[in-house]
Design a protein around this nucleic acid. Structure first.
Lengths: 351, 351
DNA sequence: TCGGTTCGCCGAATCGGTTCGACCGAACAT
DNA sequence: ATGTTCGGTCGAACCGATTCGGCGAACCGA
């Protein structure tokens, strides 16, 4: 019982031993009373609880983690903080954090993807977490390689080129974009463009970008259409200039499909500039977070990404893998339906 | 040296003892070689390092935390995941995470503000973190009370009604909104409205909301203007309907000031609907994240919130408080200049 | 050659929990 | 009366690091 001169307050180290002493029992009894792993008499439990409440005792997380060999914490690897998160990514983060909180797990954030990733290494390698959820996975991804060789349980939101080796939750961009194309083709559109995410990302092997391309090409070929593909930086201004250029270079275009939600509002502006009405003269469809699609003006016809569901499932999968790392890998591929919000309509030749 | 049948790989518990054994030294020597807190011969250091590289050893974070009494982790208390983060809030999170990473600190996320906040309690009370950064502080804030009595070092992004008792970084909303009003008054506007954040938030004692009100009232009184105040939910659609109503009910209005960045794009739409040009017929100014203000169409004349700077400063302050909790509290009040982007102009009576 | 430093390293204690084996008395079966 | 079970408790080992006191050898000047 030490007196802290600075405040004149008692400053006792309140640990399990102090509780035990004051309750007149051994430390193990306090532990059993708290965890319930062995029977403790009601009388004793009450005495212990009284002392605990009085002192505001909480077991030291580090000590518990050390002995138990687990931290009750999961890591969440997000894109580097420098680049802004898209609404969809933000949705994933929110739902993962939420789901983890429901499972009484804490979330350790690791912005990664840069070169010298101390944060990632610390999280993965120092046993700071019981498992990891990785966002924004590339077709070839060093972080996945690193995690595989470390043996730490992990789940991807997104998948690599060889997705059998890991557990993941992903959007079926290929099918979704194909569905957009078919929807537009059904409306009579013959000349379509795919507006992808930014060029660096796609060049770096960003899975959704490549899979969207594949789905676009496949569907365009199946329907005998004419398709153009273009990358566009992830913001409104880029969307505006990008689509402006596209419209000028390809006067035959009457519709676009996109996975670049951040660029859509700019693309709308480009259409206004070009004097094209949506959906009268030009149709737009894509893949986007529901919240985002609804708040655009006009609201975008899009496959609504079920970010809440996906984040929750990712946490679920991770918890399973932590409990038993030998279970076979599970894969969840989401193909949400396209919500028609009025940005697509019958084709009408431009000019 | 146990063989794990599942993979046929060696699965040794690689801890400091194992390193010591293989390097033929004691555990303490390995520790000193790593921390450099006592001299170790070059030869021995080399031998130890070789073994470490070979086995991919990393010190166990829990064991270190237990012994050292600190976790090298900070907590970041964010608004509940359910409600979406504004662009400004996202900016704070990003910059805090970034600054923490630079200081080799990890960040534990705690979505809080709900009723039974297990997450918050775990983080604050279980010694899981060395300190905490709290966002979205209310004038009266239970979390701050809780932190004060726990003795855990913390820094607010935002401040309570009694801000002397804590360290914080905040925007001077009162001054910023007053500056907006003066700017508009200088342009000849006589009838202004303040569009605040959502009503629940303001009613719950959200500081920025109240301080913006105060600054608005003060400036309006000083300049002998006529002012209207209104709350508006934090999204584009609400902004549209809210401003639509406001324009109808107050035909004398020619300008607004706002701290509700998420509603601005909707307010623009309401102005278009009402046939009002910006800035010809109507002026808009506010406080917003720079990125957001620039990506609006038209780009908003606004005080650019220096989120990066503020987050970094918050981390800096927190690190100081962790190092020495007896240092006097520090307060950083940011008053960024207003960037003129063309949404304000000379007043012209409506009608 | 001897006493004192310095260098490099070791052994043991420690942080605060969890958990296993053991013990004791009471209740119960034989 | 003896053996068994069981609820309730204790003591000690353990998790994996850090850190303090100390010890032997080399080195120094006197």
């Amino acid at each position: 019982m030490v007196t802290d001169r600075r405040f004149g307050r008692r400053r006792v180290r309140v640990n399990i031993g102090e509780i035990a002493r004051r309750a007149g029992v051994s430390r193990s009894t306090v532990s059993y009373a708290l965890t319930g792993k062995r029977p403790v008499s009601e009388e004793t439990k009450r005495r212990i609880q009284t002392v605990i409440d009085e002192l505001g005792y909480r077991p030291n997380a580090a000590a518990r983690a050390l002995k138990e060999g687990r931290t009750r914490t999961i890591g969440l690897v997000i894109p580097p903080a420098s680049q802004r998160l898209t609404d969809m990514q933000l949705g994933f983060v929110a739902s993962v954090v939420d789901a983890a909180a429901h499972a009484d797990l804490d979330v350790l954030l690791s912005p990664s993807g840069g070169e010298h990733d101390r944060s990632f290494e610390r999280v993965v390698t120092g046993r700071r977490v019981d498992g990891v959820i990785v966002m924004e996975i590339r077709l070839e991804d060093d972080r996945v390689t690193r995690l595989l060789q470390s043996g730490l349980p992990f789940v991807g939101i997104g998948r690599t080129r060889h997705p059998e080796d890991m557990s993941w939750v992903d959007l079926d961009y290929e099918t979704l974009i194909a569905k957009c194309v078919h929807h537009l083709a059904d409306l009579g559109h013959r000349h379509l463009a795919l507006v992808n995410r930014n060029a660096e990302l796609v060049a770096a092997g960003y899975g959704p970008g490549h899979r969207a391309q594949a789905g676009f090409q496949r569907a365009v070929a199946e329907r005998g259409l004419h398709g153009v593909q273009v990358c566009c930086a992830d913001d409104a201004q880029a969307g505006q200039s990008c689509l402006g250029r596209l419209l000028a270079e390809h006067p035959e275009l009457t519709a676009i499909a996109t996975i670049n939600e951040a660029a859509v509002s700019g693309m709308y502006r480009a259409l206004v500039e070009a004097g094209l009405n949506v959906p009268g003269d030009f149709s737009v469809a894509g893949v986007a977070a529901q919240h985002w699609a609804e708040n655009l003006h006009p609201p975008l016809t899009a496959a609504d990404v079920p970010a809440d569901e996906m984040g929750a499932r990712a946490v679920e999968l991770l918890i399973q893998r932590i409990a038993d790392p030998t279970t076979p890998h599970r894969h969840i591929l989401a193909t949400p339906p396209i919500s028609l919000r009025g940005t697509t309509g019958p084709a009408r030749p431009r000019g």
